[in-house]
Design a protein around this nucleic acid. Sequence first.
DNA 1: TAGCATAATGGAAACGTTCTCACAAACCGT
DNA 2: ACGGTTTGTGAGAACGTTTCCATTATGCTA
Lengths: 361, 361
Amino acid sequence: MGQVRRASLKDVASRANTSIATASRALSGTGYVAEATRERILQAAQALHYQPNLRARGLRQRVSHSIGLIVPNLLNAYYTALADSISQQLGARGYHLLLASTRDDAATEHDMLVDMVGQAVDGLIWVPSVAESDLLDYLAGQHTPAVAIVRRLKGDPIDTVVFEDRAGSQAATQHLIGLGHKRIGYIGGDVMYSSNHDRWQGYLEALRQARQEPDEELVRLGTNRGTWGAMAANELLRLSSPPTAIFVASNAIMPGVIRTLRQTGVTLPDEMSLICFDDVDWFSLSVPPITAISTAYTTLAEAAVDLLLTRAAGGSTGADRPPVYMEVNFEFVLRRSTAPPRVGALHYHEAPIPEALAGEG
Amino acid sequence: MGQVRRASLKDVASRANTSIATASRALSGTGYVAEATRERILQAAQALHYQPNLRARGLRQRVSHSIGLIVPNLLNAYYTALADSISQQLGARGYHLLLASTRDDAATEHDMLVDMVGQAVDGLIWVPSVAESDLLDYLAGQHTPAVAIVRRLKGDPIDTVVFEDRAGSQAATQHLIGLGHKRIGYIGGDVMYSSNHDRWQGYLEALRQARQEPDEELVRLGTNRGTWGAMAANELLRLSSPPTAIFVASNAIMPGVIRTLRQTGVTLPDEMSLICFDDVDWFSLSVPPITAISTAYTTLAEAAVDLLLTRAAGGSTGADRPPVYMEVNFEFVLRRSTAPPRVGALHYHEAPIPEALAGEG
DNA sequence: TAGCATAATGGAAACGTTCTCACAAACCGT
DNA sequence: ACGGTTTGTGAGAACGTTTCCATTATGCTA
């Protein structure tokens, strides 16, 4: 009639003919326990394949050594790289990772967050999908520290680490301006997300600084998806005065843009310059290779984990210090998809609306 | 001097002037509780922002409603798509996801797995990095059900869901053979992993069926990384009698292969046919678009979750039924990177050893 | 030899739940 | 008026830990 459950400390203790308390001490290495007894206990534990129940331990110690990560999805290389990096960081510091993806659905996001708090995570790393959230009060009420990444919350009420969206975007646009472009298109995601908002603003800012009047026609705000890129690029090309360069604000949008450009026979970089915020590996293999603003995922991950764990440790380091706001540097990666504008008008073939791409699902 | 911890059931109960037991019943909706009392309790819970501690609940109920996922990394689109899909599946079924990535390091893998069992997950979805593992005995001892995905364990001792590595590989090779290729190169990962092993075998099998003598010179087994692809492609090109087609066994290897081909000026598909096991979105944007064997991540994820949860539910469905082994279908995606071999010898430029690519880290 | 720190042990409380009971009150059908 | 069901409630055990505390040997110093 072998037991049908995992061996518990009680089992170990009784097999080693000792008390639970002593067994606990022996295994955790704290407090007094005679060498002989320790030996017996260790052996018993070994024999029973004893594995401490971290859930119970967490309950007693009120620390779970686990943190939650909430991202919109795992299909965009953006979040994937982040998750991988964060997972590494946490592992190295003895923490477990609970992962949830929200598909940018507010209700789902709410549920997952509440749920993670329920799981008693020690902290939360969170890509918020909304700028203002009742979840903040909630988190405060539950005494669960959280750090926002990638996207900001209004007023930055909690620790925040984002990329230099505005500055990077500005640099990209300036690059195009510097090449002599007068009509620069912008294809980006929904500006309700701060990252998209800031990139958009960076673009406008650069134009203003160069004394170029922003043309609303040239700005296409949609979603961070390949399908949107295809549509938006099509629209830009059909303008009576199409752009000579396009700044794409997310790698997820790029496949659609490139596809449309190919289908319409517009050549890069002669007839159209193309630059993207956010570098992914296949950009360097594209024909021509794509110039991009590269962001340091690892740095962001490190910063976020650091911030969170310090905050979670609380007490000593001052749990009530004001929220920290950080931006991690971008890097300009010059490749071959940008060049001075060609003189003369742009001609392109009539293109069918491209079919859906394998997007973020 | 407000409380510095989360509100517990006790707090709710005392605020509602009732017992813990009744509060529990009211909130869980089980058993008898008077309407008036229920009202009071719900209000108290609301006021205190009460959130049940799932850790404690799990302890008592011996069910955690969480499952662990162990993957080699999250930078390869392969595992990323899988993780995303599994995360969706689990979320929909009310389960939490604990994620760990091992970097294919056996020691790390061991630790993470033991750790997850310690967390008392209800089950494990696992990409094993070794074919035989003492972890199996361990899992059995801990009564933690697990399903292996992507890679098989020797003898398939537990539920297993993999892709049709062998058949897909065979189909890819047959495609090249059908085009008339006589010298088909193979670039793949370490065959200690069953997926790589089976793909390699599928390739050999196809050759044998076509009465082609496999040439060891043409087979390059290394790692699933871009850097390896670059090296291996270089080696193949330098052969006195180079291949006219290359079968690449993993998407992660492709960037390096393509880079080398570009650098040496070998044109696709005229001078070299290229086909890849495992389709990723940028293949369709490559020049030319890459022919590939596409695998159904979502299907695999669904199957794995189904299998695991049934197993975890145990009892009713027969917890002791023999392990299930499943393969999920591949799809052949014909694009433009494959063509009949060109007559005449292949010429290529001398190429430098390409620098490291952004690989799996 | 008394006094006292040190070493070794086990009992029991606590963490926050759920859930089995026992009990009491109310309501029923005879 | 009586046995029986239904309704409502709370005490307390249990889940598997850690940890505080009390207890007992043991060794040492004065």
